[in-house]
Design a protein around this nucleic acid. Structure first.
Length: 742
DNA sequence: ACGCCAGAAGTTTTT
DNA sequence: CTTCTGGCGT
């Protein structure tokens, strides 16, 4: 098995590894736990191990590697491919989503589950073409459920209900279990909403993100034949970021490896930061109990940070009780001390961070080497303003998402209805988009007609005699039915063609062309590109495949690292990344650690881990700051500095007063330093980074500039927080001298 | 269909 | 202080 590989290839997979790393790679049979400290070369071990298994004891398609994000999956897949080998084995099978060219499966938990559910849909009473409902769809269905229960959305806030339902699902509680455990009227009411929500989903053949996991866990747990088939299919299972698994994921992992126990869990309990989302750090902590024969490998050498940064981070995390003892060490330089700064208020803090970043840049540092982290998104505002003022380009890794844009959701809704006519959420979304004179009243009567006759809205619209009873709107509804019918055959087409046709036939394309919304147009163009790209990568794929792919795709993947810009993000978003220079702001009691009004003593250990994650992102320089007064929600409050600061070892810390003058950053880039030359030649009229003013949007900065036909297009970040794509020739922008602003 | 205003709500968010 | 939502008016 798999012995088509040369010894030289196998040797190459073991080359350049430390002893523990090699041990992890070579331990192929039986349970293995890899406790991988921050920056310890975990990905290298996982990818080598996967390739090693496929080269020695298994066929590539018997190897399954599960990650949490698409980004991680893609990265891992690429790195496994780069190791070479294995290609021959699969020359006969077509490339498929989530597979390496040799046929190894590398995907997220959710993608794996979607595939399994699709495979065994009959046993679950699901249609083969069920649709994955995203957050927005889920919100809509929750609202409908609340209304259905004759409750008000004011008393029963959809967001809260959503949270409650999601938590129940993460804990693998069905509505029945939830109801039986409800202790008071409030909980019993939530149970009713939950049950109704489930019913609506089922009627629409919809499956939400949590369901993907939950249904798979129940399927595997309740059906030995299925479990056995999958266990034979995936003989070697790798799970990354095991500390972040929730109950359902944990069950799936255990069930998939029940007989052979060829499970390799990698992760770091100190980096578990999603407890509030159902992740259970206990899963990784009790791995050795679950698998008494488990081999445990610790990767403790850090290749990322300086000695002092590592010492600081280690000292902080040592205060946690729920963890596995770990001694991180590094052969890297001693490095500069961790700086701690105190300011009067947020504006001072932000201004200083901006000033230090500008100094780094002047010293020759790439801005893409620098990141600023904060606990909550609202803290970015002050930073953005200060950076804008200082003329430092920045990029925010915010989840304001591509796939949540109205125009994108609209087109996708058409496609979803095409493949799943039961998807009423999507159907009602597009029934009057673009506007075709079907108003709310008509829609309501239509829904009533459907529920009275026990039919799907889709079928009622197509029923001429039923539609006739709706009076004046009948003609419009029939025209819409005709449109839907003309779209039906497209479901069999390849993704891009289906998308293109749907855009034309629906009238969306025409509406878009007429509209002034430049952004919407370019977003739809981007969607077409995405479909075309997907088709090229997965030639055999169907529309169903692509739709599933898009619904499981977060925007993390869409956030490309912009060179020439500082990165601003939350501590959560920082996980898995690294930057030479890192700032963490607002180290204050109540913010980091964050305190919530409802639960005064939240999980302090998780907050500490969050801080730990932030600190260990830094390679060379780490600067922490806090203020004495901070305004939040319009109220200025006296702030106390974070207790975490007191946990830092004093010999690795440099406490600085806000008023201290500081030297230019002392790093390796001094040689490239040059004075800010006064520019003599005339700069191009428009260039990236330039400050501009727009008559309505106000002050902003050009993020990118591109020729587009006879015109020039540019992306502009405005101080208001808006991001616009503008045609420079029409936009009436006025270039601004930075000095003008002060 | 769009815009305006009052009122509420306001961690983190891999999928 | 802000940002979003829902209801109402044009």
């Amino acid at each position: 098995m798999g012995l088509t590989h040369t010894d030289a290839y196998v040797d190459s997979l073991l080359a350049n590894l430390t002893e523990p790393q090699r041990e992890a790679v070579q331990h192929t049979e039986g349970p293995l736990l890899v406790l991988a400290g921050a920056g310890s070369g975990k990905t290298r071990v996982i990818t080598r191990r996967a390739a090693y298994i496929a080269a020695t004891v298994a066929r590539p398609w018997e190897v399954l590697a599960i990650t949490f994000t698409n980004k991680a999956a893609n990265e891992m897949r690429e790195r496994i491919e780069a190791l070479g080998g294995g290609q021959r084995d699969a020359a006969d099978s077509p490339p498929r989503a989530g597979r390496t060219s040799s046929g190894m499966t590398v995907c997220t938990f959710h993608a794996l589950c979607a595939r399994i559910l699709r495979m065994y849909h009959e046993r679950l009473g699901l249609s083969r073409s069920f649709t994955v409902f995203d957050q927005a769809d889920r919100r809509k269905v929750v609202k409908d459920a609340i209304v259905h229960c004759q409750l008000s959305t004011t008393n029963w806030a959809p967001a809260r209900m959503e949270g409650a339902i999601s938590r129940a699902k993460n804990a693998m509680q069905t509505p029945e279990i939830f109801a039986s455990e409800a202790s008071d009227w409030g909980e019993r009411t939530i149970a009713r909403i939950y049950a109704t929500y489930e019913q609506i989903l089922a009627e629409q053949q919809g499956v939400d993100f949590d369901d993907l996991l939950l249904k798979t866990a129940f399927l595997l747990g309740g059906d030995d034949i299925v479990r056995d088939q999958l266990e034979r299919r995936y003989r070697y299972v790798l799970i990354d970021e095991y500390q972040d698994t929730n109950e359902a994921q944990y069950r799936i992992a255990r069930l998939l490896t029940r007989e052979r126990q060829n499970i390799c869990a990698t992760g770091d309990p100190d980096q578990s930061i999603y407890g509030w989302r159902g992740a259970n750090i206990g899963n990784i902590l009790k791995f050795e109990e679950d698998y008494p024969d488990a081999r445990v490998v610790r990767l403790e050498q850090n290749y990322r940070s300086t000695k002092r940064i590592l010492a600081g981070a280690s000292a902080v995390i040592a205060h946690n009780r729920r963890r596995k003892q770990k001694g991180l060490w590094t052969e890297n330089d001693e490095g500069a001390p961790i700086r701690v700064l105190e300011f009067e208020e947020a504006e001072d803090e932000a201004r200083d961070v901006a000033r230090r970043i500008a100094a780094h840049k002047a010293a020759g540092r790439q801005l893409s080497d620098i990141a600023v982290f904060y606990r909550i998104n609202s803290l970015s505002r002050a930073l953005e303003e200060a950076l804008l003022q200082a003329g430092v380009p920045y990029q925010i890794a915010r989840g304001t998402e591509f796939y949540n844009r109205k125009e994108i959701k609209d087109v996708l809704a058409y496609l979803r209805v095409m493949i799943n006519p039961a998807d009423e959420t999507s159907l009602l979304r597009i029934i009057n988009v673009p506007a075709r004179g079907i108003g709310d009243t008509t829609v309501e009567r239509l829904q009533k007609l459907a529920s009275d006759s026990g039919r799907r809205v889709y079928d009622v619209i197509a029923d001429a005699s039923a539609v006739q009873t709706l009076g004046r709107s009948a003609m419009k509804l029939l025209a819409f039915a005709e449109l839907l019918r003309s779209l039906e055959p497209l479901a069999q087409q390849a993704p891009m063609r289906a998308l293109d046709q749907a855009l034309s036939l629906s009238g969306l394309r025409a509406a878009l062309t007429d509209s002034a919304d430049e952004d919407a147009r370019s977003n739809v163009d981007e969607l077409i590109n995405a479909a075309s790209e997907y088709e090229q990568d997965n030639p055999e794929s169907t529309l169903v495949d692509w739709l599933e792919h898009t619904s499981l795709l977060g925007d993390v993947d869409a956030v490309r690292a912009e060179s020439g810009a500082v990165t601003l993000m939350t501590l959560h978003a920082a996980k898995g990344l690294e930057f030479p220079v890192v700032f963490i702001v607002a180290l204050e009691e109540g913010i980091l650690p964050l305190q919530h009004v409802d639960e005064p003593d939240g999980d302090i250990e998780e907050e500490r881990r969050l801080f730990f994650v932030g600190m260990t992102r830094a390679e060379r320089e780490l600067t922490l700051s806090h203020v004495r007064y901070r305004m939040q929600r319009g109220i200025t409050q006296r702030q106390t500095r974070s207790p975490f600061l007191a946990e830092l070892p004093s010999r690795d810390i440099e406490w600085l007063d806000a008023d201290d003058e500081y030297a230019a950053p002392h790093d390796d880039h001094d040689s490239q330093r040059r004075p800010e030359a006064t520019r003599t030649q005339r700069p191009p009229r428009w260039c990236e980074g330039m400050l501009v003013r727009h008559p309505t949007f106000g002050l902003g900065r050009l993020v990118w500039v591109q020729p587009a036909g006879k015109h020039t297009r540019a992306g502009v970040h405005f101080t208001s927080g808006q991001h616009k794509t503008l045609i420079l020739e029409f936009a009436n922008l006025e270039p601004i001298d930075p000095r003008e602003i002060d």
